[in-house]
Structure formats: structure tokens, C-alpha cells
């Protein structure tokens, strides 16, 4: 599965429509970095730790993790906590991409070391604009630790 090994963006999102919108928005902004969409936090952690479905696949770590907050099984906060607690993943850029504008969620995410917190707007035009900007910033402008 060479495509898995090339993953540069890990998108954890339980809503298929939201995932599709995000992918389309990135594609429209000409950000063609290979993206893997996982449906919950458990699968995201399986991918990052090379276990379960992703066992034995020595993929390089992604350049960016986009996390939804509310997901079945393991939610975004738990994934974030796990990433920051794992030495090999500690410096991984993680962006919360969520519908929740609750202050408590923002504070909790930053306390756990999130790199950015984006509230997805309802209005589609803005969604497309913001995701394009997000991709541009994190994948083109930003220099992550290697």
C-alpha cells in the first residue's frame, strides 16, 4: 500500500460529508498532498502507531494531523493527548478542525498542546476559504520539524 506510506495529511473526521468538503476544498486550492481520511480517533491512533489495520506498515509520520473533536470511540482530545504523550509524535503539527466554538474545548485543546484551533463555519464559501488557507499555511508556508 504505497499510498498509505505517502500520507502527508491525516484527516480524522466522523462525518463523511465534512470529510468530502475538506478534501474538495484542499484540492480546489491546489494542495495535492496525499491525504488519508479515518472515521474515528481509534483508527487515527492505529495509523499513527502502526497497529491494527496499519500494522507492519512503516509509513513516515504525516506532516499534518487534522482532528475533529467529537468522534465515536476515541475523540479528538484523546487522540491529541496520546500524540503529545508519545515521544516520536510529540512535535507533530495537530490542528483541531471542529464545529465546536465552546471556550472549554478551545482551552482544553491548547492545554494539551494543539498547534491551532479552527472553528468550521456553517457557510460553505467560508469553509472552502478557510480550509484553503489552512492547507496553504500548514503545508506550504509552515516549516515543520523533520
Amino acid at each position: 500500500m504505497s499510498e498509505v506510506e505517502e500520507v502527508e495529511i491525516l484527516l480524522a473526521e466522523d462525518s463523511a460529508t465534512d470529510a468530502e468538503v475538506t478534501q474538495r476544498a484542499l484540492k480546489k486550492a491546489n494542495i495535492g498532498n496525499p491525504l488519508l481520511w479515518v472515521k474515528d480517533g481509534a483508527e487515527a491512533l492505529d495509523f499513527l502507531h502502526h497497529r491494527g489495520r496499519y500494522a507492519g506498515r512503516a509509513s513516515a509520520r504525516p506532516r499534518l494531523v487534522l482532528l475533529d473533536l467529537k468522534m465515536p470511540k476515541v475523540d479528538g482530545i484523546e487522540v491529541l493527548r496520546d500524540i503529545r504523550a508519545t515521544p516520536a509524535l510529540q512535535t507533530l503539527p495537530v490542528v483541531m478542525l471542529t464545529s465546536s466554538s465552546e471556550e472549554s474545548d478551545v482551552v482544553r485543546s491548547y492545554a494539551l498542546g494543539v498547534n491551532s484551533y479552527i472553528v468550521k463555519p456553517v457557510e460553505s464559501q467560508k469553509v472552502f476559504e478557510e480550509i484553503a488557507r489552512l492547507g496553504y499555511y500548514w503545508l506550504i508556508m509552515n516549516r515543520p520539524p523533520s
Binding site: 462525518s15 468538503v21 473533536l69 471542529t98 457557510e123 469553509v127
Partner: peptide, 17 residues
């Protein structure tokens, strides 16, 4: 904030698409 906004965004985004 989470559960209602998500389907709304889907409606608007897919209408846009």
C-alpha cells in the same frame, strides 16, 4: 453547536458543490 451545525454545513457545502 456541534450536531446542528455539521448537517447545516453539509447542506450548504453540497449545494455549493
Amino acid at each position: 453547536s456541534h450536531d446542528l451545525r455539521s448537517p447545516l454545513r453539509a447542506i450548504d457545502s453540497f449545494a455549493l458543490m
